Simulated scan of single mutants.
Amino acid sequence: MEKTSVLVLIAEDEAEIRNILQDTFEEGGFDVFLVATGEEAISALDDQGENLRAVVTDIMLGGDVTGWDVARHARQLRPEMPVVYMTGTEGVDWSALGVPNSILITKPFAPSQVLTAVSQLLNAASTPGTPPAT
């Protein structure tokens, strides 16, 4: 039986956090596509959009393109795309700037929190219209 890999885009400008998330997701059975800037994330979405199954993005990526922009672009390509935001300071803007059905995780966090959030969103997306168990 062939393994079906799930490719997750991780956009994080801090190399240490990016590397920790890469290890966590790969240990969890995911493939990762790592980028350091919002501009790189937009390009990755345009190039790999059909292959990407979820987006994990820092909100402040140190350039003109923010995590908010990355998530909106992902949702323009695929409206059901799971999005997990990471931030140390920008969480208060989530309700106004974040995309619907996303998860926000504040720094500092345990890497497993991000993995769990992506898994929850992927599971929710894979069962559209399924009535809740009674």
Rank of each mutant, 00 (worst) to 15 (best):
A74I: 04
G28A: 15
D23L: 15
L61N: 00
T116R: 12
K107D: 04
V114K: 00
T66F: 07
E2V: 14
R78L: 04
L122D: 00
I103H: 07
N101G: 09
G88V: 08
A11K: 01
W94E: 02
A110W: 08
S112T: 14
S5Q: 11
D93I: 00
I103G: 00
A133I: 11
T4H: 12
Q22M: 13
H73Q: 13
E14R: 08
L121A: 01
V65H: 02
V55A: 04
Q113Y: 10
G49K: 09
N51E: 14
L115T: 03
A44V: 11
G98M: 02
L122S: 01
L34E: 04
L115E: 07
L121E: 00
A110Y: 13
P82R: 00
W68D: 02
T87E: 05
T37K: 06
L7T: 06
V32P: 06
A41F: 08
I59P: 00
E16V: 14
E80A: 15
P111S: 08
L52M: 07
M60I: 09
A54R: 00
F109K: 02
V35R: 01
E90H: 15
A15M: 12
T116V: 12
D93Q: 12
D46F: 05
N123R: 13
D69I: 05
L115Q: 07
V8K: 00
G28C: 09
N51H: 14
G91C: 07
L45W: 06
L104T: 02
Q22N: 13
A124C: 04
A125I: 04
D64F: 03
L7A: 10
I10L: 11
P111R: 03
S102N: 09
G129E: 08
F25T: 00
E50G: 14
F33Q: 09
G28K: 09
A124P: 01
F109G: 05
R18I: 09
R78E: 06
